[in-house]
């Protein structure tokens, strides 16, 4: 990867990776730090990185950096179980996005990551598996579970409304 390709990568993917990390960490400064570190690491190894795989490389580095950050700081409690104790208060009926964000926040870290990589970036199960170091079948199972949980949450909310 040349200097120009690296800088193009910054222009093209910096926002994407920032969104992905921000949605997971829910802290702007931490997300910025993680993204910056990820780009620094990519720059250090830019001679070894294939330009065509720069996005995948970047997300992989950023994801690992994020996991390290979570483990280190422990600001976010890792939950694999969907939080059932949802309090629905003063929620506008048509605000699907807000409801969905709440549902997303109640997913476990892994499931949330998988959903974001799938929906935001459109990665395939195989690519997600490479980024998160999971098998393709694991990705499929976790992602399907997450999706069903999101659906059930929507149904529940709609029932309440």
């Amino acid at each position: 990867m040349t200097e120009r390709e690296y800088n193009e990568c910054v222009t093209t993917y910096a926002d994407n990776v920032y969104r992905f990390i921000l949605k997971n960490l829910r802290n702007e400064e931490d997300a910025r730090d993680v993204v910056q570190t990820a780009f620094e690491k990519m720059w250090i190894h830019h001679d070894e990185v294939d330009a065509s795989k720069s996005k995948s490389y970047l997300f992989t580095v950023a994801y690992r950096q994020m996991i390290d950050h979570i483990r280190k700081v422990k600001r976010i409690q890792l939950k694999e179980e969907f939080n059932e104790n949802v309090k629905v208060q003063n929620r506008p009926a048509n605000n699907l996005k807000k409801i969905l964000d709440e549902a997303l926040a109640r997913l476990g870290e892994t499931q949330r990551t998988l959903v974001l990589l799938k929906d935001y970036e459109g990665y395939s199960y195989e690519e997600i598996g490479q980024i998160t170091n999971l098998s393709e079948s694991q990705v499929k199972v976790y992602l399907h579970r997450a999706r069903v949980q999101l659906k059930e949450y929507l149904v529940k909310v709609e029932n309440v409304i």
Binding site: A14, D15, N16, Y18, R19, L22, R32, V35, K97, L100, A103, L104, V115, L116, D119, Y120, R147, L150, K151, L154
Partner: peptide, 11 residues
């Protein structure tokens, strides 16, 4: 349940 990227969130 499919999320849409938020374009307003930028680095």
């Amino acid at each position: 349940t499919k999320l849409q990227p938020e374009a307003e969130v930028v680095f």
